[in-house]
Structure formats: structure tokens, C-alpha cells
Design a protein around this nucleic acid. Sequence first.
DNA 1: GTATTCATGTAAGACGTTACATGATTCA
DNA 2: TGAATCATGTAACGTCTTACATGAATAC
Lengths: 182, 182
Amino acid sequence: MAQKNKLQFIILGLLNQQPLTGYDLTKAFDNEIGEFWQAQHSQIYPQLKRLEEQGYVTHEITLSGEKLEKKLYHITTSGSELLHGWISVGTPDLTATKDEFILKLYFIQTNHDPRLTAMLNEQFQLHSDKLAHLQERLITVFPKQTGAKQHYGHYLILQHAIGRETYYVNWLKTTLQELPAN
Amino acid sequence: MAQKNKLQFIILGLLNQQPLTGYDLTKAFDNEIGEFWQAQHSQIYPQLKRLEEQGYVTHEITLSGEKLEKKLYHITTSGSELLHGWISVGTPDLTATKDEFILKLYFIQTNHDPRLTAMLNEQFQLHSDKLAHLQERLITVFPKQTGAKQHYGHYLILQHAIGRETYYVNWLKTTLQELPAN
DNA sequence: GTATTCATGTAAGACGTTACATGATTCA
DNA sequence: TGAATCATGTAACGTCTTACATGAATAC
């Protein structure tokens, strides 16, 4: 047992909302939870197979057009129990951030390093774009102010991510301003 | 080539400051950069071997006591070039956060979910502890206000991490306060 | 008709964690 | 003298990414 196989819980969590195909699940990692977890289809299809063998999901075949078979996966009672067990237990392990830019920064010796400005500017652009994207998502997914009654968790994490990126962008801006002129 | 092997650059970056043994490097992942990256000795020793085969580091044997041989690793010119090449190229890929708690939150449907308070409180404790630890580190590593002349990058990332955790703790507190009474 | 998207799978290899294994040195 | 720490390594296994592979349906 190397890690914890969180992917299986994400899949179960998504299937708990509605039946989906492997392709749908792959897409979900571009939109919904792409900000928080990443996975490719080459990981998802085998995982679905394993979940079915273990009785946590089942699938039915639907036709798209005349020949193309889609496997629409449903969560089972046992799968739902596994999911809620995972949510209910504690989450005491904070994983390290693994931010490559931060790692590079660590090895910069002085505030006169000629590479600093370009590095900070690049990250400023990237995180500003990400922030804008998240703000757009929040408006798209929760158009009304009152709209967070359902999908409260989704609302929370979007709002959390926006706050986090806002902090990151502001920190980059401040750090850039405090660099010595040259 | 699956990922980018960032571990090799971290090792080179640490050896660029001073010669270290595999054991020292392992320790560094508990203190220095443990907040930003994690690695076990079972990853470090083979990586050192590979770096040596490729000519990026060399080692000399020193004795600790009468029998115990330590391998003290030094970075080579070629290794230093590899390190600075890595630092100098752009870092355009923002990796997903992979925060398991955030993932669990996503699957919470309503703000009346009975598990929410305990979940948020646990994270509040964990992130408060982490914040306190980081603040202590900052004082330990940079005792004087002016002390960030050398190791500027180290100062920056500590300060960045403190800001990030401060935001996280405040967000948890606010979110807890906004939960409906029960 | 042709490019894009839908749809599902496997294979190879790199990365990362846990466990296995051994022995010396230091501190109480 | 016994426990904790120093010190180095390998093995097994799980996760994750990239690439290989195929074919149907849809939009332009």
C-alpha cells in the first residue's frame, strides 16, 4: 500500500451525484475538480474496472448513435458507504505544497539576483489568470448570491481557492515592489 | 520521461550551498524544505548514485568514529550548471493543490451536514499548529530584522508560507462562524 | 469530406511510499 | 548496557504521466 488511492473516492463522489461514463469523469477533471486534483483517462478506466470488481459501482451500456457503446457507471450502496466512510474519518495529514516555483525561489541567494524579476512576473501572470478563471467559475456555477444551498462544499472550495489565489497574487505584487531598483 | 525529476534539482541546490551526506539530505527534508517538498532516504540514495554516474556530483569518504564511513557529496561544475539552468527556465505549470480535506469538502452537499463542524475544527487545529511552527522557524532562521541579505529565497518562501497559512486559518475560522447554529 | 470531439482501452516507464535489512556511534 | 540516533542501502508495490492504439459520431 503506497498511498491512499484518493482517485477512487473522487470517482465515487462524482458518481454519487449522477451516473457518468469514464469519458465524463475525465472531463470533470478539466472543469469541476481540475483545480484540486488531476487525473488522466488512462488512470480512470482501470480504476472504474477495479471499483466494479469490488462491487462499489456497476455499469449499463447505452448507445450513442448506432454503434458507439458508452458505459454509464452507477454507484452502489456499498460504494456510497465507502465514500461516506472516507469523508467521515479525520484528515490529519497536510501534504507538502510541491510548488515548483517556490522550490526555485528557495535557491535564490540575494535580492539582487537578476532572475528574480522575470520569475516573479511570470508567476504573477499565471496566478492572475488562474484567479480570473476561478472568479468566472464562481459566477457561472453559482449565479445567485443565495445559490449555495445545494453544492455547499463546491461553493466553499471555489471561494477558498479564490482567496488563496488572491493572497498569492498580492504576495507576488508586494515582493516585486520590494525588490531593489536596478 | 514521466515527470521532471525535481528531486535531483533539490539535491543539487542543497549541495550547492555545502557538501552533505545522504543522511544530511534526508534530514533537510524534515527541516528546511520539508514544508515545500518531501522525500525519503530510499529515494535520495539512489538519486545521488545516478547524479554521480552522470557527473553532477562526486563524493569523498569520511570516517565518523573508527569504522563508520560517511559519503560526503560535492556538486561539480556541470551539476551547478544543471541547477542554474533549471532555475533560469520558466515555470509555467501550476500543479493542482491535492489537499485531501478540500477534496472531501467538495462532496459535502449542504451547510447542515453534521460532519462539517468537526472537519473544519480539525483543519483549524492542524493549520494553526503549522502556522505557529512556521513563525517559529522564521524567528530561528532569521533572528534579526535585517537578516535576509543572504538566503533571500529562503526568507521569501518562509514568509510566503506564513501568509498562506494565515489565510487558510482565517478562512477556516470565518467558515466555521458562518455555519448555521444547531 | 475532413477535422474535432466522443469514447474506451493498454503499455511503458518514472515517481513516491512503505517495508526490509544491516551495522556503528552516542548518550543516559 | 540499552535506547536513540547516525548512516547506507535494496525490494516491493502503488501512483501518475506519456504514449500507443482504435474507432464512431458530430460539426463545419
